[in-house]
Nucleic acid binder design. Sequence first.
DNA 1: ATGACCTTTTTAAAAGGA
Length: 268
Amino acid sequence: MRLATWNINSIRARADRALAFLEREDIDVLALQETKCKDAQFPREAFEAAGYEIATFGFSQWNGVAILSRVGLDDVEPGFVEQPPFGEVPAVEARALGATCGGVRVWSLYVPHGRALDNPHYAYKLAWLERLRQHAVDWVAADPQAKVALVGDWNVAPLDTDVWDMAVFEGQTHVSAPERAAFAAFAEAGYTEVSREFIPDERKYTYWDYQQLRFPKNEGLRIDFAYTSPALTPLVKGVKIDRDERKGKGASDHVPVILDIDDSQVSA
DNA sequence: ATGACCTTTTTAAAAGGA
């Protein structure tokens, strides 16, 4: 089974690219972030025609997550329990969507950005990650054989080498100690960030700003990750960052991260 | 060439992104 995660930065603007990607990379399950549309606006038909079931969670032009699967799509969960809300009128945002696909509990995650260290969005980000971590612990405590994949745009650069120039990011979000601790806490809970296991190299980014020739200069960030639960980790046989997807006109600013999972021991 | 922001919505100008 091939499982991919991709912050697509509008599914309506990039449905054709998504379809081409699914076919080119032979993807079974695709977790999307920043779909930027309401559920009713999601371009379902083309994906259904290609053989995928679709679960969406979107309220507006902001955020939005989805999961496409051709190996089953069950127990869909829009948002996690007690997901922290945000806003003047506190509301849960469309940043997490769970579904069971081919025996794997997939969570498509769009972690809050944080905006600035003194912004309320930053405290929201840390609380959001901590609540998710508690769930991650509980899920494997309840069932040590649970195959859980927490995939998406984590909006955290765990290592200094995950940003193209640390001097630029000093005092900014994504690289602060609390954010990195919140990210590392998933590993302390027994999960493994498998992209790092398979791709330990530096300057292997997943995001490049549209501005200032960041992509051709390879000035990017590594912020899209895949944490797998103890039972799932040994089944992950490979990980690829699809850097080519950033090329050409009409690319998202993020590229997909693809996991190859050994099907033979995963029952649907 | 891998190329000089993009997407959305109250269709102009602003917000969010990282």
